[in-house]
Design a protein around this nucleic acid. Structure first.
Lengths: 343, 343
DNA sequence: CATGGTTGCGAAACCGATTTCGCAATGGCC
DNA sequence: GGCCATTGCGAAATCGGTTTCGCAACCATG
């Protein structure tokens, strides 16, 4: 009767994990052969392949990612450079990017720089280089300024999101403000509205101009014209109240308003309630940003709104930076319509 | 006249980067000595140290992080396991954690699991192990359920945030709901209020119970009692409207209300406006969540509110998982008071 | 049968750091 | 002067994979 052979773990490792050499030894092949089998490179006979795979499976072999990275020179880590990631709108972009990276088995090394110094090598850039990142995602703050291009500091792909870069060959993902304006307007037209006004924020904002253009395009397609001159203001609820009151006082015939954001739209709703205007029967209202979607889980949705798909933008940027075909230039992320009771 | 010696790069590397061996060769020391100088280990004469450091500086030597990780067996990567990271409240926690990790030069490998199967080895866990993460942060969804403890699957530290684990020795960071209730109430008392009511969400929520207790404690300290029985409801604005109307109809004397969240508080504000109650003179209002702070950049703040500091929670969890002293048990993140015009 | 190409696999170099161990020189002490 | 401990430094092993190169066996072709 033979002595029971206990299930002694195979490796004599420091961490007790199974190494490729363990697999090779047990399968009776060389290290190189085992490696080739696992990676599918080079020609290997079907018999050997099967044997190695079986042993690897049995030992639950998991290649040491650190050794692999070292040998390949690829870190499976992507740098993410944010510009005030704690701002309201950047958050979803960062989350979208980081989650997508996770799905692609890539770690994210996220640095938040207060200022992006133009074309200068910052400490963050040096860190990224030292860490041998496989790619870099630069996430802006969604404002109008172009980010300084830092692509030339890297040999790995760099993708920009939520702020244009100042180099035309860079790959950039941006919200489609023009599309948002068109989407909102077409929706209102489909709902039978023909007298549509635009109440929005600061006229100096490029985004405002683009949404305006999108709206005008959609109106033109339908042979319509704006029901009233666009009213500019600030981005707060109070501004929406004021703009709506003035619009009503102007006596213009209006059956729908496209609002620059959801705050303004809320202000409009408040005025409607105060004045006894029924929404959407008397006036349809569409906002932008979908923050009811962000904030409200249990709350009641009051608004139809345009979601600029910031999370998708981060997701697309992450997928892009690791992709093979990266078309240079600015890519616009299609917005979506979120239906609510206001239209 | 000697020929000009061009600034030929030193290394014969594949990536053209400076290796430690380059530094050592030029400084005229061995690889090991150079390594010891750079890491401060072992005894080295001042002269050699200075020489090596000077050369390293001159060549702009940056150690290859991949080789370093491999040799040390530490990946400088922390796993982050989220449970629906796109939910409203988890987002800030994830952002806080990821940014803090970046500050600590650690990459984040973020996996989002739809379900955390109790104590089972999921594919995510296997991936984390294969990637040799240096630590793991488990971020819950802020709901009441305890996350299943997965600490035993890892040899590296595991820290939980935003959901208790079901193992008492785990390190857990949670919002301080009791503290939030107390903070809000003390603030109202300091403002001279003595008739304080509580309008909140579902009575089955543990968070609600804790906030209630915090409020009662603070009232007791001041020798006060609630101005009215707590009114429960849902978490939406409509619920706040209803509760406030009922409170007024009940005839109770009330000069302040503590609301379960900012939606409810908004509903209360609306009722006040409709009934001609001045805020804060006739009625002070405090909410919870500070979503005006999250959402509004330009908007006008209407509410005083309690910020549960979710971002800080992520930050603390990240710092903790890499720290040396990790006290087991549940740690409560102190909430902050955000002053607004409603109190 | 000679030749040349293909197939299957292994030995060894390599990636770039850290770390162990040992040697020689130096210094202190009796 | 003799002995031992300390100091300063280098040779070589190590981490665990990937990859190059070459060898031997086999096959097909003329």
């Amino acid at each position: 009767m033979t002595r029971l052979r206990y299930n002694r773990p195979v490796p004599s490792n420091r961490k007790g994990s199974v190494r490729l050499s363990d697999v090779a030894a047990i399968a009776g092949v060389s290290l190189s052969t085992a490696s080739k089998v696992l990676n599918g490179t080079d020609r290997i006979s079907e018999a050997t392949r099967a044997r190695v795979l079986a042993v690897a499976e049995r030992l639950d072999f998991r290649p040491n990612a650190l050794a692999r990275s070292f040998a390949l020179g690829r870190s499976r880590t992507v740098g993410v450079l944010t510009h005030r990631a704690d701002s309201t709108f950047s958050g979803p972009v960062v989350i979208g990017a980081v989650l997508q990276l996770g799905r692609l088995q890539q770690a994210a090394l996220v640095f938040d720089e207060d200022v992006l110094v133009h074309r200068e090598i910052t400490e963050s850039i040096r860190q990224f280089q030292a860490r041998q990142i496989d790619g870099l995602i630069v996430i802006g703050d969604g404002h109008e300024r172009r980010s300084p291009s830092i692509t030339h500091h890297f040999t790995v792909p760099v993708t920009y999101a939520f702020a244009a870069s100042d180099h035309p060959e860079d790959v950039v993902f941006l919200p489609d403000n023009e599309g948002a304006g068109a989407l909102a307007t077409r929706h209102l037209i489909e709902r039978g509205r023909t007298h549509i006004a635009h109440l929005t924020g600061s006229p100096s904002s490029i985004a405002v101009g683009l949404r305006e253009r999108g709206m005008l395009n959609a109106l033109n397609e339908a042979g319509l014209r704006p029901a009233a001159p666009t009213r500019y203001g600030s981005w707060g609820e109070g501004s929406g109240v004021k703009a709506m009151q003035e619009l009503l006082e102007s006596g213009a015939k209006v059956d729908a308003v496209f609002c620059g954001n959801d705050h303004i739209a809320r202000g409009v709703l408040d005025v409607c309630e105060a004045k006894g205007l029924r929404v959407p029967q008397d006036l349809a209202v569409v906002g932008v940003d979908n923050w009811e979607g962000i904030i409200v889980d249990q709350g009641v949705r009051r608004l139809t709104t345009i979601d600029l798909e910031l999370r998708s933008m981060g997701q697309l940027a992450a997928a892009n930076v690791l992709a093979d075909d990266r078309t240079p230039g600015e890519h616009y992320v299609p917005p979506t319509l979120v239906l609510g009771p206001s239209s």
